[in-house]
Amino acid sequence: MSEFDIKKPVVALPDMDPEPQIPEEELFFTEEELERIAGFTEKYPTNRSAVMPALWLAQEKFGFLPPEVMKLVAEALDMPYAQVYGAATFYTQYYKKQMGTYVLDVCCSFSCQACGSYDVLDYLEEKLGIHAGETTEDGRFTIQEVECLGSCGTAPMLQVTNGPYVHNLTKEKLDELITDLRNDKMPPFTSVTLPQDEDEMGGNRRSDVEHTDTYRTPPAPERWI
C-alpha cells in the first residue's frame, strides 16, 4: 500500500519518526516502576484504562512525553502506540514538548480575569522576559495561560508544575515565588480557610497543614485581556 501524499495538510501532520529526545540508555522503566504500572492495571478491567496513570508516572520520570516515551508506555501496557498517542495528546497536563523545570500555569478564566490575572501574566512575562507559552533560555521557567483551575475565590492564582497552588497573587508574592523557585524551593501546599470557619472556629480547621491562606478582597484589574 502506498503512503498518502498530502501536499498541503490543513493541520501539520505529526512527524512519524522523530529524532529521539531521551538518550537510549535512559529510556527504560525500572523493575519497581513496571510493578507500579502493573498495579495500575489491576484497578481497572482493561489494561487500556491504566494509560493515564502510566503516562503520569512517565512524565514524572522523564519530565515530558516525547513519542519514544509514549512508545515505552505502550509497551509496558501491551497496547498500540496509536492509542497511547491519542490519549496523551488529548489532555493538556501531559507535556508533549520539553518544558521548563517550573511551569507557571496562570489561571486566566473569567473569575481570575475579573480579578487581574492578566496583570499577573504581564508581570511574569516582563520579569522573566518571555511570553506565555515560552520557556526561559536557562530552561528554568515556562509560563502558560491556562483555563479555570478551580480556585476562583482566591483569584488571581497560579499552579506550579501541576502541583501546588499559589493563591491571592500580588507583585510581592510573585517576586517571592520566583526567588524561591530559583533556589529550587517549591511552594508548600496551602489550605485556604473557609470564611465561615474563620468566623466560627477562629482559623483553619486542619491541624496537619503548615501553610494557610484566607479569602481576600480581590484586586481591581488594570488590564482585562
Partner: peptide
Amino acid sequence: IILHKGAGAYICGEETSLMNSLEGKRG
C-alpha cells in the same frame, strides 16, 4: 473505591466523556 487522576480536560466533566477517559481513550 478507586481514585482516578485526570489530566486537564474540561470536557471530561461530561458524563460520557468521563467514561471514555476512564477507559483510557480520548475524552
